[in-house]
Design a binder for these strands. Structure first.
Length: 156
DNA sequence: GCCAACGTTGGC
DNA sequence: GCCAACGTTGGC
């Protein structure tokens, strides 16, 4: 079982949307590094930190679980979608998706600033290579993050 | 809205 | 295959 961090823009689709629909296709990935991780390493049962980016409060908002293998992202074939890719074709799809299911919304968002200020998380991909939209998370990093979230819970 | 970091494209 | 130009991401 692997741990990941998936980025979303809460204005488009955030943890609350996932909590409401329980399960959703994670689509629109248009970066090769992220695509390769989805294709080669993400498997059913993997745990995912849902991260909110490009918004007022950036940080980790909750947890989801991978519930399908990678399959072609249908948006790449839809001319009306902003994720349409004219260079892709159904017999040789370029982009893929997985489905994820809602697990938990944190009582409080864990801000990026808190993650950056924790020396135990210095090596996180989020800190070192912030732009990648699908990121591997080490088991140890996952633990540290959950501990930070749980401390916040106790304060609440 | 600015800007740094990074990814992609395309000419050569 | 290099590299300059350009586009995008995303924190602040």
């Amino acid at each position: 079982m692997n741990y990941w961090l998936f980025k979303s823009e809460p204005d488009e689709f955030g943890i609350d949307d996932l909590a409401a629909c329980k399960r959703e296709r994670w689509d629109g990935i248009r970066n090769y590094q992220a695509r390769n991780l989805l294709r080669d390493q993400v498997v059913v049962g993997d745990q995912v930190l849902v991260y909110h980016s490009s918004c007022k409060n950036v940080g980790v908002a909750g947890i989801a679980e991978v519930v399908t293998e990678a399959y072609p992202d249908p948006l790449q074939f839809d001319p009306d979608s902003k994720y349409f890719d004219p260079k892709s074709s159904p017999d040789n799809p370029r982009w893929i998706s997985v489905d994820i299911a809602f697990v938990e919304k944190f009582p409080r968002l864990l801000p990026l600033a808190s993650i950056k200020s924790n020396p135990q998380l210095d090596e996180m991909v989020l800190v070192k290579q912030g732009r990648l939209s699908i990121q591997p998370v080490k088991a140890q990093e996952w633990q540290v993050i959950l501990e930070m979230v749980n401390r916040g819970r106790a304060d609440a």
